[in-house]
Design a protein around this nucleic acid. Structure first.
Length: 786
RNA sequence: UGGCCCGUCGUCUAAGGGCAAGACACCGGUCUUUGGAACCGGCGAUGGUGGUUCGAAUCCACCCGGGCCAACCA
């Protein structure tokens, strides 16, 4: 649909779509299958919306499917109530899972079988230590963990114990099932994670069938695998969990192509909090009226406020998907709402803070019907009649006794137009003798101005109004940001995010609306009747903003929520945004001397040969300490260097090739690449003797790393010999220059950045084979010479 | 502090060796019976230092900054 069109282009696709594109080219998966896996223990909020839009959107774009799966593995916190609320919210957002509704609890038996398999394979054990003991034995980020006394129980004993755990023979906490992996892993999650715990608790779906329940790390990857998920998307904080995800799936024997996990940044919005824990506090402590309080970022709250689901989808599309933690400007949500509502919301009138206007020259008893279109910019728009009699309400803010420069609204002696009606002039101001407050305006109207402008003068402003004769009293709930500060979590010692609550986040006023907003109107979309679902009734109150009926609305006591105000360039001019004091977070600029890496230094301490080489490279070859450091950080890298050096004797040159180009092909665990040092040395030789350009040599190296072929063979097979013949290159250079004549002119006019463009074009056309120094020379001659 | 992830306009996101692009925000202007909308224009960024390269936001090294992990939560 319209929001998707931007994504159709190849450029600018997010990293997840790029990965999926690649998988599709490889034909790796039969179908793209994603999932949205909420835990039914709370309400969905706008952060979840990003994940929903991503997962369901991907399925839609790639013609795959997206599962809705309740990740209900914790009987203590989960509840039926939430499963229906979550389904309603997703549907409201505009997505559908078809028949693919699943529950993790339905997989308990299969998961249990996997756990037994793991035990039989010696990959899991029953630990009878207490929770505290396990935590204590796990070590810290800097110290390795140590085994508990139960780690080496026999398979038989483990199996027996685990079965009795299931059978309910033990109290909560008596035993747990743990993976047997590596207690010294630098990744804390891999230090024998707990897979099952005993919980004699009633589960809202599986009842009392189970008294052991799997934990997230064990359960989630299996759920994905059971369902044939192809791309399992989660937020950044699960990054560390990917290792256990893969470990379990591999140990459980799931073959490629199987599901894999990818992490993206969760959505954050300033002036809001999005953590479940904090949302619960706001509700429980009564800072808001409930989960659907319109000030909350919950989908229920946004819906009640009147935000259209399309606006939330648009926001998610604008925000994109990436791996960098970020906080989105709340103004983007406002934009998305206005953008969505502007083309469709009927224009109507209401007055928030009324001020009485009496038309002194209006004949007593006369009424006039003024025809007003609901969508004034659209030809053929449906209309309604506004009844004008001798008195109207206008907005108190639209009048001032002493107008500032640029004021276009009413002031003593000034003229304005009543929207869809006449031009009026303020003749007299009635004030309360006690308070001095303006209570009424006496005005006269110009009969010649209905539907046309006076010729002798310009009327600057137009005011919205409601007829005092037949306006309907209404309550307005005006919402503002929930917090006063952009980052409510930024609190001083012993402070709390609730300290930053905005006391003015809800302002209630009583005013008037035109009758159509309460009675309904057959031709106006969104306000067709008093019984309409509240969030279906979204209108613009002209000059004020977009409003929706609240769930509390009744025709007898109409209540409207302000969804968002209109852009207001006047307000900005009058109250310029306070320059928010920004704490300077930029790093102080200090020149730091690069150091030898601690990690590599430790490797050398453990390997005397590397330590010797480290010294030798500096002393005998004249390499810098830093280069020598990198070259001796692992056996694989150092061997590569040694091997290459045996073929090509220039230590500096070889060292640069190893460090900058070849080292990246050494595996994470120090596995040697597909080529050896000698092959690398040969390649460096070919660069030195001018056979190939450096650029081509890098390509060759890449191929060596995948195929393991000999460099000469690759050069031969793909005829990559360097092109240094001017006779050949000149026509190419001239072709580029004439094709990009405009750019060339720009270059001559001073845009030096463009040199790379020409260079790149020539290089591309030569298949990267051209001698760059020569090309540069030829180009320079032609661009600068004549 | 060990490991992992991440640093591009004020904000969000592209470009992944060759013209730093778009959106929001902001600032001007045109138009206007919404100080709205629409239209036109402008401002504005590669965390730092070295290195590799004809050419670096992109590759390498170090530094700085931010985030995540030591639940029998997810």
């Amino acid at each position: 649909m319209e929001e998707l069109s931007r994504r159709q282009s190849t450029a600018g696709r997010d990293f997840i779509r790029q990965i999926i594109d690649r998988h599709r080219e490889e034909g790796r998966y039969e179908e793209i299958v994603t999932r949205f896996p909420p835990e039914p223990n709370g309400y969905l909020h706008i952060g979840h919306a990003k994940s929903i839009c991503l997962n369901f959107g991907l399925a839609r774009e790639y013609g795959g499917r997206c599962h809705l799966r309740f990740d209900d593995t914790n009987p203590l916190t989960e509840d039926e109530e939430f499963t229906s609320a979550i389904q309603r919210d997703i549907r409201w957002l505009g997505f559908d899972w078809g028949p693919h509704l699943y529950f993790a609890s339905d997989y308990f038996e299969r998961m249990y079988q996997v756990a037994e398999d793991l035990i039989r394979a010696g990959k899991a054990y029953v630990d009878s230590s207490s929770e505290e003991e396990i935590r204590e034995a796990r070590g810290t980020v800097t110290e390795p963990g140590r085994p508990t006394p139960y780690r080496d129980r026999s398979v038989e004993e483990n199996l027996d114990l685990f079965r009795r755990m299931r059978a309910g023979e033990f109290e909560d906490g008596a035993h747990v099932l743990r993976a047997k992996i590596d207690l010294a892993s630098p990744n804390m999650i891999m230090r024998d994670p707990v897979f099952y715990r005993i919980r004699h608790a009633h589960h809202y779906r599986s009842g009392d069938d189970w008294c052991i329940y799997p934990l997230y790390d064990f359960a989630h990857c299996l759920e994905d695998a059971f369902e044939g998920i192809s791309h399992s998307l989660c937020t950044l904080e699960f990054d560390n969990n990917r290792e256990i995800y893969d470990w379990i799936l591999d140990e459980a024997g799931f073959q490629e192509p199987r599901t894999h996990q990818y992490e993206f940044a969760r959505l954050n919005l300033d002036y809001w909090v999005l953590s479940k824990r904090k949302l619960i506090r706001l509700v429980r402590e009564g800072h808001v009226s409930g989960w659907d309080d319109p000030r909350l970022p919950t989908l229920a709250g946004l819906r009640r406020r009147g935000v259209p689901p399309a606006a939330i989808r648009l926001l998610c599309d604008m925000v994109g998907v990436a791996k960098a933690n970020s906080t989105v400007d709340l103004g983007k949500l406002d934009y998305a709402i206005r953008e969505t509502l502007n083309p469709t919301a009927p224009r109507t009138m209401g007055v928030l803070n009324p001020l009485r206007v009496v038309l002194t020259d209006w004949p007593r008893g006369r009424t006039e019907e003024l025809e007003a279109p609901f969508l004034p910019d659209r030809p053929g728009s449906p209309t309604r009649n506004l009844t004008l009699a001798g008195e109207v309400w206008i907005e108190a803010d639209d009048f001032t006794q002493d107008p500032p420069p640029g004021w276009k609204r009413l002031s003593p002696g000034g003229e304005v137009r009543l929207r869809h009606g006449y031009v009026i002039r303020c003749d007299e101001v009635i004030t309360d003798p006690e308070t001095g407050r303006v209570v009424e305006l006496r005005c006269s109207h110009d009969r010649g101005t209905l539907g046309r402008n006076p010729e002798d003068r310009k009327i600057g402003g137009t005011l919205h109004w409601v007829s005092a004769r037949d306006g309907v009293a209404a309550e307005f709930r005006l919402y503002d940001r929930l917090f006063r500060v952009a980052d409510p979590d930024d609190v001083p010692e012993e402070g709390d995010f609730t300290d930053h609550l905005n006391p003015d986040s809800l302002v209630v006023t009583r005013g008037w609306v035109e009758p159509a907003l309460v009675q309904g109107h057959p031709d106006a979309p969104g306000i067709s009747g008093p019984e309409d679902a509240p969030w279906e009734a979204r209108v613009q109150l002209e000059r004020l903003g977009y409003f929706a009926r609240d769930v509390d609305f009744t025709p007898e006591a109409p209540v409207f929520n302000r969804i968002v105000g209109l852009r207001d360039t006047w307000a900005k001019r009058v109250t310029p945004k306070a320059p928010e004091e920004k704490t300077d977070t930029s790093a102080p600029i200090v020149a730091v001397a690069p150091r030898v890496s601690d990690a590599r230094s430790a490797v050398r301490d453990a390997d005397p040969e590397l330590a010797t080489r480290f010294e030798r490279y500096q002393a005998e070859m004249g390499l810098s300490e830093l280069d020598a450091d990198v070259l001796t950080g692992s056996r694989a890298v150092s061997d590569l260097f040694e091997g290459a050096l045996a073929v090509h004797g220039d230590a500096k040159e070889v060292s640069a090739w190893v460090i900058n180009e070849a080292a990246r092909f050494v595996g994470e665990e120090g596995e040697a690449p597909a080529f050896d040092g000698a092959a690398l040395g040969t390649l460096v030789d070919r660069v030195a003797d001018g056979t190939v350009s450096r650029r081509v040599a890098k390509e060759v190296l890449g191929e060596m790393a995948t195929s393991g072929d000999d460099p000469d063979a690759i050069i031969e097979a793909r005829s990559l010999t360097q092109q240094a013949d001017p006779e050949v290159l000149i026509p190419v250079v001239e072709a580029v220059l004439s094709e990009f004549a405009e750019k060339a002119a720009e270059f001559r006019a001073g845009n030096r950045n463009l040199f790379g463009l020409f260079m790149g074009q020539v290089m591309r056309r030569s298949g990267g084979k051209a001698d760059p120094a020569l090309v540069r020379e030829l180009l320079t001659e032609r661009l600068e010479g004549g």
